[in-house]
């Protein structure tokens, strides 16, 4: 039986929750507003900005003209997509084996993989930095694709494993009986069924890679810097910069914000390793 709730109570809930939600969202909303103001207007008092200033898109143009914004945007795109798809490529066979032909040690291997995610990055900062320097990988997109692929690999394997396990093994067996080779079985039977799960895995890992801000800050300079590192350059700006910082930030977070809203459920699954159901 559904509990009956008075309209008054529901209204009160809506108002309180709505206000709190808006409060959490306000910083994002605010930079969207500031990004459409002139630099001079962007530092005025909030009420004046809202009701007493004009709108302009000039900051978006300035950001691109002054700092080649789209170079950094495409760096972010290449690094996050590259690391995610490379990770999927390596994780699919591992997750397949763990889900459908589990051995006695499967659980231990999975646990160990997850535990590598808990290694603090700063603990291996020095060796990675030196290895990258010696291999000429500092400030290259290749280097970052590799690092971000490695730090997200445990999450990718884990998520794919949980999705694969939801697929009944009998269907794969039937395909095998009908004479499908292993490769055919994976490509034509398993992957089509796993597409929703794989899509969520891809989505969450693009988000994580896009926002990663330890390795991207420490291993890049001007050339391969993705947006995380580019935005950081606004910590020592010249002159007025609120509108420019807002425009640069809005473009940097918009794609991820939209993807993030679609992947709320995967977030819980992917980041808690099944410890919360």
């Amino acid at each position: 039986m559904a509990r009956s709730v008075t309209t008054a109570r529901k209204t009160a809930n809506t108002i309180v929750a709505g206000a709190l939600g808006l409060l959490m969202f306000f910083p994002v909303l605010w930079i969207i507003i500031l990004s459409f103001k002139t630099e001079g207007d962007a530092i005025k008092a909030p009420l004046e900005i809202l009701f007493n200033t004009g709108w302009t898109t000039e900051s978006y143009g300035t950001v691109q003209a002054r700092s080649n914004y789209f170079k950094h945007f495409s760096n972010s795109l290449i690094i996050s997509l590259g690391s995610t798809f490379l990770g999927i490529l390596i994780a699919v066979p591992a997750a397949w084996a763990m889900a459908f032909v589990p051995a006695k040690r499967t659980k231990d291997v999975l646990m160990w993989m997850l535990s590598t995610k808990m290694l603090p990055p700063v603990g291996v900062l020095v060796p990675i930095y030196l290895i990258f320097r010696d291999l000429g990988l500092l400030d290259t997109r290749t280097g970052l694709v590799f690092v971000l692929m490695m730090i997200n690999l445990p999450i990718i394997v884990w998520m794919l494993y949980t999705y694969f396990r939801e697929i009944p093994g009998e269907i794969l067996e039937a395909a095998r009986m009908d004479g499908a080779s292993l490769r055919e079985e994976v490509i034509y039977v398993l992957l089509p069924m796993a597409i929703p799960g794989m899509a969520s895995t891809v989505l969450l890992n693009i988000i994580l890679a896009w926002n990663e801000a330890f390795w991207t800050l420490n291993l890049t300079a001007a050339k391969a810097a993705p947006l995380t590192a580019f935005i950081a350059s606004y910590s020592s700006p010249e002159g007025l910069f609120y509108a420019k910082l807002s425009a640069a930030s809005v473009m940097a977070i918009a794609p991820i914000l939209i993807m993030g809203w679609f992947s709320q459920k995967q977030l819980v699954r992917g980041l808690t390793f099944g410890a919360v159901k």
């Binding site: 910083p27 800050l217 993030g260």
Partner: peptide
């Protein structure tokens, strides 16, 4: 609205809070 901050990259949230 409530979960949006989680998807904002750390350098953006640091700088936006610091300045704006």
């Amino acid at each position: 609205m409530a979960i949006a901050p989680f998807f904002v990259m750390p350098t953006v949230s640091g700088l936006v809070w610091k300045n704006m």
